[in-house]
Amino acid sequence: MEQEVILEVKGLKMYYPIYSGVFKKVTGHVKAVDDVNLYVKRGETLGLVGESGCGKSSLGKCLVRLQRPTGGEMRYRLPDGQTRDLLTLSKQESFDVRKHVQIVFQDPYSSLNPVKTIYEAFDEPLRKHKMGNKAERKAIIGQLLESVNLRPDYMYRYPHEFSGGQRQRICIARALCINPELIVCDEPVSALDVSIQAQVLNLMKDLQQRFGLTYIFIAHDLSVVEYMSDRIAVMYLGQIVELAPAGSMYSEPRHPYTEALLSAIPIPDPDDSRERIVLRGDVPSPANPPQGCRFHTRCPKCIDICKTVPPELRLVAGTEDHYTACHLVETEEDVQ
């Protein structure tokens, strides 16, 4: 059965204005997300990887409308079958839609209010979305805490009484409290130690199965993303350079940037004989991205056309769902 598309993003742009001078005139834009197209199917996990500053968190924030994107479309399919564009909705409508989309942040220390008990932190979204009376809400919160392997009576504690791993589980439970369908996870495990990281990752997989959740999993750790995701999008300077199922992304990366990223993962095996591709230089500024292919300044395979013509994300020849934006890769269109 073909899975239903839950979210479709078309030409999404998020530009942050740069102000300068005495009158704070807008002198340019940081193009954090520049013309991104993607779709997410119900029940899958879409991984989003890239280096810092590539726009993956901006994209995540746009998807839950914590940021108002500069342009584009974000079509969200509601459980009742209707499709809504999150960008054009009125305040009340977008409030209703956002009930189905939640976010979990990177740092569990700063994303829980230190002066509120866990109960208060959970009760607020429940009340806001008018779910149940007081006793019912308390029961819901107890169940949620149990579902992330914490004792229900922990709801009367304050955030400082918990360890990092426990807090992150609390943040996940809080995201679940209004029964969302799609959860954007913005680096949910990068602030945690390895042994705790594994607990949280396992938990997230369990919850996904139990509640039929759809995840957008943002991270910079490629091995974690591969383990969690069904499909992966690699971002570079605000654009998606490769989009493919996790398996074929890792076995046959097509974009030189993905190749370099994968070869840079350190593997704890003394017999590891992969050749490491070391990219030169730094990521250019997203305020002034290079002409042509944005990766050409660091690409080991750069040819003349890369410097002038920006490549588009196209289907790779001989595959069904492996997309890449590179002039050097033979696409389905080239073959025809």
Binding site: A198, N202, K205, E226, Y250, I265
Partner: peptide, 14 residues
């Protein structure tokens, strides 16, 4: 407990 590239997805992390 560290996921390695190529790990089976259905396998749980230790």
């Amino acid at each position: 407990s560290v996921p390695l590239p190529g790990l089976n997805k259905s396998e749980r992390l230790a």
